[in-house]
Design a protein around this nucleic acid. Structure first.
Length: 275
DNA sequence: ATGACGTCCTGCCTGC
DNA sequence: TGCAGGCAGGACGTCA
């Protein structure tokens, strides 16, 4: 599941390869993944465009093209974006191939077909549903302890589903949310309004630390994640709770539990993260 | 404002 | 061994 650190890793691996290259052709093998525009217009508009820059916003990858166009990718669960030689065999899950003017390919593949792609003028980015309502960047300057204190005070929801809400904080998914709550010693079912200042400070630091460590370790590969060069990440080795049901807590030795909270699997230590 | 649930999709796991 | 059925999960829409 690509979350912020995985998307950041894809961006960092693609950036040195793609900047300055021109897209000379687009092959669309699964039309429904292109949200806008329709596939004929997509092909026409993207052909001849140059890749000027690659950015990340939340879990979105944002390609800045010339002529004021932006190409957006959301990898969702199993999507990947890989730079490779053009003679590399196509995987059966490849849905979009962008041919580049150096005889290489940028390929989008997604086993579960949940990933989505948009090609939009930079000027209309703020009308894209999902993208336009994204919350604060958790590694950015706006996301401070006092910001988190102020925001949590008026949210009458459990902390886990709130952290997963992309309009609240952009980029956290199931893995890093569970890891951050464990580090902060906060039970995922706690109501946001009941967290005390010390806990909020711990949570703020924990969120930034787990994301930063995730990036430093090139992302988490539980099953599918690969970076822009097709390589898995390393952070799965360092996870403390996620996907560790029944295994001992790395802090206290108690067995990690798994419980559905807000419809999502949540892993936590019942001793370190008391209600 | 909040939450529950269905939808998308396919590989994997479980049970028979 | 093989098959059927359930499950997981990010985002979004619908309904209560």
């Amino acid at each position: 599941m690509p979350e912020l650190p995985e998307v950041e890793t894809v961006m960092r691996t693609l950036q040195p390869k793609l900047i300055g290259l021109k897209i000379i052709a687009a092959q669309i093998l699964l039309p429904k993944i292109i949200r806008t525009p329709d596939i004929d217009e997509f092909k026409e508009k993207i052909t001849g465009r140059k890749i000027l820059k690659i950015n990340r916003r939340g879990k979105y990858l944002l390609f800045i093209l010339n002529d004021g166009l932006n190409l957006l990718f959301h990898l969702r669960m199993t999507g990947n974006l890989v730079y490779c030689q053009q003679d590399e065999p196509l995987s059966k899950y490849t849905h979009l191939v962008l041919a580049l003017d150096n005889s290489c390919h940028l390929r989008f593949a997604d086993m579960r077909q949940f990933g989505r792609i948009w090609l939009v003028p930079a000027s209309s980015m703020n009308s894209l549903s999902g993208f336009k309502d994204l919350g604060v960047e958790p590694l950015g300057a706006v996301f401070t302890t006092s910001y988190l204190k102020k925001e949590l005070k008026r949210r009458h929801v459990r902390i886990k589903p709130l952290l997963l809400d992309q309009t609240f904080i952009a980029g956290l998914g199931n893995i890093y949310t569970d890891e951050a709550l464990h580090r902060a010693k906060i039970n995922p079912e706690r109501l946001a309004t009941t967290l005390n200042p010390r806990e909020i400070t711990r949570l703020h630091h924990a969120i930034r630390d787990v994301l930063q460590e995730g990036i430093e370790n090139r992302g988490t590969t539980v099953r599918d994640f690969i970076d822009g060069n097709g390589r898995p990440g390393n952070y799965q080795e360092l996870l403390r709770v996620y996907n560790r049901e029944g295994k001992p807590c790395r802090r206290c030795g108690q067995n990690i539990l798994r419980k559905k909270i807000g419809g999502r699997s949540s892993y936590y230590c019942p001793a370190c993260q008391k209600i």
